[in-house]
Design a protein around this nucleic acid. Structure first.
Length: 271
DNA sequence: CCATGAACCTGGTCGC
DNA sequence: TGCGACCAGGTTCATG
């Protein structure tokens, strides 16, 4: 389900309900949800401790205690929200009881979502690339990255080890805005397009966060409200429609293993 | 190092 | 209505 803006939206929606509170108990409904630790370890390590911070890193939700963290990845269909009673929904992977009486619900239809426990956030930071909204990210850095590799640009932008947070929706949108064909080899992309791409990545993600993310199928947060950025999508899942810039019919094709949308007129491979 | 396809799961949609 | 095929916002692993 979620890319950077959707995860950011979730973090913002649960932060106030967690900070300075404590976990009291956890009810695991789908055992595999705990990726690298057990229910006992959860109870021994994470219960009755004050939550210091709730943040996003890439597509991870970070719940920080002292140095150690509970990291949650929603994968495709994970949802994380509060409820003041135990819901009867079908696909609940875990329920965490909070000391204020609320329950933090992890609901996940496809069951790909996972909880991770790490002694510090370094482990994640070391394997994740730069945050696209940080100061670290700019046209010059992006130029260095793209020109130092010879990879299909779509695959490169989806690779979380390099730039962390983009997913299928926003990569398609940003490549369209920058007039870059998704199959272009990264080191062949002209500097001017990369400069634009850097700006488009930032502005697109920021606009989407403002709109509380994109609802493609069923992304919801809080009480089932959904993100409004869907209204601002230009290319994603618009195959067969005219390109908003040139009216050419938008194409869908598999690139880097993912359904990929682009305008064959605006986005031409440059050699 | 990189591309590809499968695997992990469930449900929705489309064609017949 | 039913059934099979295919697709889905993500990531990881094996293979060539």
């Amino acid at each position: 389900m979620p890319e950077l803006p959707e995860v950011e939206t979730v973090v913002q929606s649960i932060r106030d309900g967690l900070i300075n509170n404590e976990f009291e108990h956890i009810d695991i409904r789908w055992p595999k949800v705990l990726f690298n630790f057990s229910e006992d370890e959860f109870l021994n390590n994470l219960v009755k401790r004050k939550i210091q911070r709730v943040e996003r890193r890439a597509k991870f939700i970070i719940i920080g205690f002292n140095e150690d963290i509970l990291a949650i990845h929603l994968r495709m269909t994970g949802k994380l929200y509060f409820q003041n009673n135990i819901p009867q929904n079908k696909h609940i992977s875990a329920i965490i009881k909070i000391n204020n009486g609320n329950y933090l619900i992890f609901e996940d239809t496809r069951k790909f979502g996972r909880f991770y426990y790490y002694q510090s956030q370094d482990y994640l930071n070391n394997k994740l690339g730069i945050e696209p909204l940080s100061n670290e990210m700019n046209g010059r850095i992006l130029l260095n990255i793209l020109h130092s590799k010879k990879r299909i640009i779509k695959a490169l932008l989806l690779d979380q080890h390099i730039i962390a947070g983009l997913g299928n929706i926003y990569v398609d949108e940003c490549l369209w805005k920058s007039n870059i064909h998704p199959e272009t080899i990264s080191n062949k992309i002209p500097e001017k397009n990369i400069t634009i791409l850097s700006k488009m990545i930032k502005s697109t993600l920021q606009s989407s966060i403002k709109a509380k993310g994109t609802t493609v199928v069923d992304f919801t947060f809080l009480n089932g409200r959904s993100g409004k950025y869907s209204d601002q999508l230009n290319i994603f899942r618009k195959e067969g429609n005219p390109c908003p810039k040139c009216s050419e019919i938008i194409i869908k094709k598999k690139v880097a293993g993912r359904g990929t949308h682009f305008c064959p007129n605006c986005q031409v491979i440059e050699y």
